[in-house]
C-alpha cells in the first residue's frame, strides 16, 4: 500500500508536505529548471530520462486528475482482510470489547 511505502521512506513528514516551499522565491524556481536538461544519448538513438524530467512528467500527469477527498482517492487498493484471526487480534483493541494489556 502506498502509504506504508511512504512512511518507510520518509522520516520527516514536514519535508514531505512543505518540501516544495523551501526555495524562497517561487518565480525564480520556475525558471532555473531548463538549465539542467542535459540530455545524454544512448547509442545515438535513445535519450536518457533525467530525474527532473521524470518529476515533471509526474506533475503533468497529476495536473488534470479528478478531485476526490477519500483516503484511497482514485486507486482502489485491496483492503486487508481484517476478519482473519491474526488481523482481528490487532484491530480488536480499538473496540471497547477488546482485551487490553493494561
Amino acid at each position: 500500500m502506498a502509504y506504508f511505502d511512504r512512511q518507510k521512506t520518509s522520516k520527516n513528514i514536514m519535508k514531505l508536505i512543505y518540501g516544495d516551499f523551501e526555495v524562497g522565491n517561487k518565480v525564480k524556481d520556475q525558471n532555473n529548471d531548463p538549465s539542467e536538461e542535459s540530455e545524454e544519448e544512448i547509442g545515438g538513438l535513445f535519450k536518457r530520462v533525467t530525474n527532473s524530467q521524470k518529476r515533471k512528467q509526474k506533475l503533468k500527469d497529476q495536473l488534470d486528475t479528478d478531485e476526490c477527498s477519500y483516503f484511497y482517492a482514485l486507486n482502489k487498493p485491496l483492503i486487508k482482510d481484517w476478519t482473519n484471526d491474526a488481523n482481528r487480534q490487532i484491530l480488536i483493541n480499538n473496540f471497547v470489547t477488546g482485551k487490553r494489556s493494561a
Partner: peptide
C-alpha cells in the same frame, strides 16, 4: 495517516494564508 488530498490542502493553506502546521 494523512491522505494525499489533505497534504495538498495543507500546501494550499500555506499559499493562501501563510499558515504552516507543525507535523509530528
Amino acid at each position: 495517516p494523512l491522505s494525499e488530498y489533505t497534504i495538498r490542502f495543507l500546501q494550499h493553506l500555506k499559499e493562501f494564508f501563510g499558515v504552516m502546521f507543525k507535523m509530528e
